[in-house]
Simulated scan of single mutants.
Amino acid sequence: MGLDAFVHCRCWQDGLTTPCPVGPVGYDEEGCLTLLPTDGYDAAAENAFYAWMAEDACPHRHMELVSEGVANWTGVRMFQQALRAAGADRFPTLVAGLPDGNDGGLTAGQAATALAELDAFGESRIADGTALVDEATGEVVMQYIESYRGVFMYGAGWHAGVDPAGFFVVDTAAQPPATLFRATRFAQRVLPDGRVDLVGDDGTRATVAMRPVGEHGSPPPERLAVLTRPRCADDYAYIVEPLRRLCAASVATGNPVMWC
């Protein structure tokens, strides 16, 4: 799951499409080409309209000049966090315009401003990040995301994550929720009964009915550490480049960037 976006081509505005088999057709209040409402819902007409857009209307599939998978939601939140850390007042359009869900968009005017902000971001000093790494390989297992309060793993009665103070496991079934384990460097061992034994270098210890940290590895890491790692603008190319293409297309066509 993540954030996708598109920009309509100009074929409809410029009279370059084939005739639509149904109607009326026009732009909704957000700037998305659609079958305008009439009396009652007509599923056949709607299906015919979307089939026309997808294949027959013009050379652009779905009448989209540009369509991008912007980033997964974790990637979006990491970029939003970097924007705030670099100075939210310097990137007001990006900070306000990147959504919390799959709706809304940017007008062509906002897209032009966002392009300038993306250029400025590329020249910015990015704050260091907090990450949990596998000590044996240096691979990042999880990163601190402020909007998630650092939580990255969920299970029945527990959640776990990383923040600047270390890796933590919380018993969410307790009232109030209680921290079962916290450490900046620790070892983990999966017991025969499936529980995980966590031992911090500071002597803290807990045995928890949870999944092992970094379980996507085979086997999962034995030793992990929370580190502060330098970040740079290039680390966010995964989202900056698709945003740049979308905004450039919006400016060129005068059509909005539509989140979806």
Rank of each mutant, 00 (worst) to 15 (best):
A44P: 07
V196H: 05
E46C: 14
G87P: 01
N255A: 13
M1R: 15
G40V: 10
D103N: 15
P219C: 13
M153S: 11
A127T: 10
A249R: 04
P19H: 01
F152R: 02
A209Y: 01
T179G: 03
R149P: 00
C232G: 11
A165V: 02
T130H: 06
R10W: 01
W158C: 03
F152S: 02
A249S: 07
C232N: 15
S67I: 00
G150F: 00
W52K: 07
G15R: 10
T113M: 11
A173T: 13
R84N: 10
F181T: 03
A187N: 12
L98Y: 08
P220A: 14
P21S: 08
A209K: 02
A136L: 11
V170F: 00
G157L: 13
P219S: 12
E64R: 13
T253S: 14
P21V: 07
V22M: 06
A131C: 11
C58A: 11
P99M: 12
V66R: 03
S67V: 00
F79S: 09
C11P: 08
C58R: 07
G87H: 05
V151K: 00
R149E: 01
D14N: 06
V213E: 00
V22K: 04
R195D: 12
W12Y: 15
V140N: 08
G138M: 12
G254Q: 06
E215S: 15
G23W: 04
E46T: 12
T207S: 10
T207N: 01
Y41N: 07
P164L: 01
